[in-house]
């Protein structure tokens, strides 16, 4: 199972919302294999990751994008590599 966490501001800014929706759209291409969770960048976990900008997308504990909204295809490639594809 791939665990995707979208770290953003609280309340969310427009880009944080877009990043979350983009992650959910990409995850929908991998039914039952990817979970997406919205997290606060100022949470203990967020601070522990030393994020420099929001939104940040973390896949299985690894920061894959920060301060921008990644393309859906970019996230799909990350998921495929995580699945060993």
């Amino acid at each position: 199972m791939i665990e995707v966490k979208v770290f953003g501001s609280e309340p969310p800014c427009a880009k944080c919302r877009q990043a979350e929706e983009q992650a959910k759209r990409a995850a929908a291409k991998f039914p039952g294999q990817v979970t997406v969770e919205k997290c606060a960048a100022q949470s203990a976990e967020g601070l522990g990751l030393v994020l420099h900008m929001t939104p940040a997308i973390v896949v299985n504990g690894r920061v894959v994008s920060e301060g921008r909204v990644p393309e859906e295809s970019e996230l799909e490639r990350v998921f495929l590599s995580e699945l060993g594809g």
């Binding site: 501001s9 609280e10 969310p12 800014c13 427009a14 100022q42």
Partner: peptide, 18 residues
Amino acid sequence: VGRDALEKYEAYNLSCVP
């Protein structure tokens, strides 16, 4: 700002900031 805003933010049914 931040979490202090959440109560009012939800009361107004806002979807994002600023």
